[in-house]
């Protein structure tokens, strides 16, 4: 006991401070700035997440095709190294910028905020953020989005919601993508919806194929509705 005391005295006094601060506070602070900006310009901001290769970029292309005559849409793409996805999306005739994360496996609010000046937000009704393909860390980083949409491809197996619960818990919409492949795969849409709703009973679900077009009209209607609400 006395030894402990003496070492403590030698090292000086220890003060303790209860902080209880969110360790992502720096991120969330910037996310709120983005949210405020989007509220002013009435731009609907959608954060698109999924595992790698679930069809995010293809969906952006398809959505651009369907909606670009009705409204102004733009995309921001997070990618580890390349410019490819942004190029693919630009081919559909809409503005798309790449945020190269340089190896970071998710987007942070600061990265989104940095490229916002490149967009003329006053004119943009719908801005998509294609997040880095990964269901783990993007779940923790608020980007100031109005809605979070998670793609879950039929090729991934139907056990994802319970493997990555935080992503499904924080999403507003789950798109079961690549539905055209269902006849060839041991994938149960019902099972995946059941699991996802055990995690998040408010989760909306649509089944889509960006390739064959199934569900794309319903998806675009959902977006149009959300835009209308935001601009009301």
């Amino acid at each position: 006991m006395s030894i402990e005391k003496s070492t403590k005295a030698a090292r000086g006094s220890v003060q303790c401070e209860n902080t209880n601060i969110n360790l992502l506070k720096a991120n969330d602070y910037v996310a709120d700035i983005i949210r405020n900006e989007m509220a002013k310009t009435k731009t609907l901001l959608i954060n698109i997440t999924s595992s790698a290769g679930s069809g995010k970029t293809t969906l952006m292309q398809k959505t651009a095709e369907k909606l670009k005559d009705k409204l102004t849409m733009a995309v921001m793409v997070g990618d580890l190294e390349t410019e490819r996805d942004a190029e693919r999306i630009r081919e559909s005739g809409i503005q798309a910028l790449q945020i190269v994360t340089g190896g970071i496996c998710h987007l942070e609010a600061q990265m989104v905020h940095q490229v916002l000046p490149e967009y003329n937000l006053e004119d943009i009704d719908l801005l998509f953020i294609e997040n880095v393909g990964n269901l783990v860390c993007p779940a923790s980083f608020d980007l100031g989005e109005d809605y979070r949409v998670t793609l879950m491809a039929t090729t991934e197996g139907d056990d994802k919601p319970k493997k990555y619960p935080r992503m499904f818990l924080t999403s507003d919409m789950m798109l079961v993508s690549k539905s055209d492949l269902l006849p060839y795969l041991p994938f149960s849409v019902d099972a995946v919806i059941k699991d996802a709703r055990e995690v998040n009973h408010e989760l909306e679900v649509l089944q889509i194929s960006a390739l064959k077009g199934e569900g794309i009209d319903a998806w675009c209607d959902w977006l149009l509705n959300k835009i209308k609400e935001k601009q009301a």
């Binding site: 220890v14 003060q15 401070e17 209860n18 902080t19 601060i21 935080r166 055990e198 009973h201 408010e202």
Partner: peptide, 29 residues
């Protein structure tokens, strides 16, 4: 990950613990 009240079986998202990422306390010397 079954977000279901064990008493009345209703689904709930009302998390009171488990989602936090907190710097709970710091010490200075």
């Amino acid at each position: 990950y079954r977000f279901l009240c064990e008493k009345c079986d209703r689904p709930s998202k009302n998390l009171i613990q488990g989602e936090e990422m907190l710097i709970h306390k710091v010490e200075f010397e």
